[in-house]
């Protein structure tokens, strides 16, 4: 099959990105993915799971006496929302990984397979609008999994507490929690779209996405063990994401069991983890840019 390497309509299109087109693409993709049972289960599991867990935590820490609360944290006045966020976030991150794979892997792959790109680009839209629409659709699911539970937990703590001024007191914690959540959404979405754009088969894109995380995770752990240097973990986007988000959500010291602590190795350099995330995001973006310019056409 001859490949037209350079001449498919590229980024030089003169039409300005139109929010209407971007939202039309994103909205349609979201409604199509919502028809998948797995997607509905995962989003429900993340939101309701977080609510159930935090409800239990806040009941323990808020409604029972100070002695019991003191058992769990060094400071009875500790930011319980931050503690709950930290404990839930790692699980949510894993659900976000799965849901971005399920939702994102077919995003561009199925268009390539169905030759739908010809239909898209016979419309007055640029590649940028197309990619933005797809990005928003995947990111929306990641946001629902990562951000909505944090908001629900904030509301829940306010509802279960009779403390005056708690809303204002906890708001900075809530807003600070958005940072790592949105960072994770951006990195995961860009990576999955980049991989999706490289294949015309949804299965290959899904496997590729998990392979990136699985293989780099194993290799990074082996290298970190062999060289006795935990910074090798930066090879893995998953380890880097967990390292960076752990740093962005600082955990107050707990007296209670280590089960409440996130099992993140915090001994390695967070700057390297940031660099790793930047490289992986750049690779996703590069794959998208490259594959959108290199579209097969039949002579």
């Amino acid at each position: 099959m001859p490949v037209d390497r350079a001449s498919y309509r590229g980024w030089e299109g003169t039409a300005r990105p139109s929010p209407r087109s971007v939202l039309a693409i994103a909205g349609t993709m979201i409604s199509r993915r919502m028809k998948l049972k797995l997607v509905r289960y995962l989003t429900s599991a993340s939101v309701f799971g977080a609510i159930m867990f935090s409800a239990g935590w806040f009941l323990l820490t808020t409604m029972f006496d100070d002695n019991f609360r003191a058992l769990l944290s060094t400071n009875p006045g500790a930011d319980q929302l931050l503690i709950a966020n930290r404990m839930v976030f790692g699980r949510l991150l894993f659900i976000a990984l799965v849901i971005t794979a399920v939702v994102g892997a077919p995003m561009i792959a199925e268009d390539r397979r169905a030759k739908a790109l010809r239909l898209y680009f016979s419309r007055p839209i640029t590649h940028l609008e197309y990619v933005l629409g797809k990005f928003l659709a995947v990111a929306a699911f990641a946001v629902v999994v990562l951000v909505v539970p944090l908001i629900a937990m904030y509301v829940l703590e306010l509802g279960l507490s009779d403390k005056d001024g708690l809303a204002a007191e906890r708001l900075p914690t809530l807003l600070a929690s958005f940072g790592p959540a949105l960072l994770a959404c951006g990195v995961l979405t860009m990576l999955v779209l980049g991989i999706s754009s490289l294949s015309a088969r949804t299965n290959h894109a899904s496997i590729g996405f998990f392979a990136v995380f699985g293989i780099t995770g194993m290799v990074s752990q082996i290298l970190a063990g062999v060289f006795r240097n935990p910074t090798w973990q930066a090879i893995s986007p998953w380890s880097s994401l967990r390292r960076v988000t752990a740093q962005m959500l600082p955990m107050p010291e707990l007296k209670a069991s280590r089960m409440f602590q996130l099992p993140v190795d915090s001994t390695w350099d967070v700057g390297t983890a940031w660099l790793s995330l930047a490289v992986w995001t750049g690779l996703g973006l590069g794959a998208l840019f490259w594959s959108m310019r290199k579209v097969e056409v039949v002579a």
Binding site: G13, A15, K115, A116, R118, F121
Partner: peptide, 18 residues
């Protein structure tokens, strides 16, 4: 000039559906 495509309707030969 992608904006010119507002004035064009295109029916491609291959199947291109969701």
């Amino acid at each position: 000039t992608p904006s010119i495509l507002r004035r064009i309707g295109f029916l491609p030969e291959p199947e291109a559906f969701y």
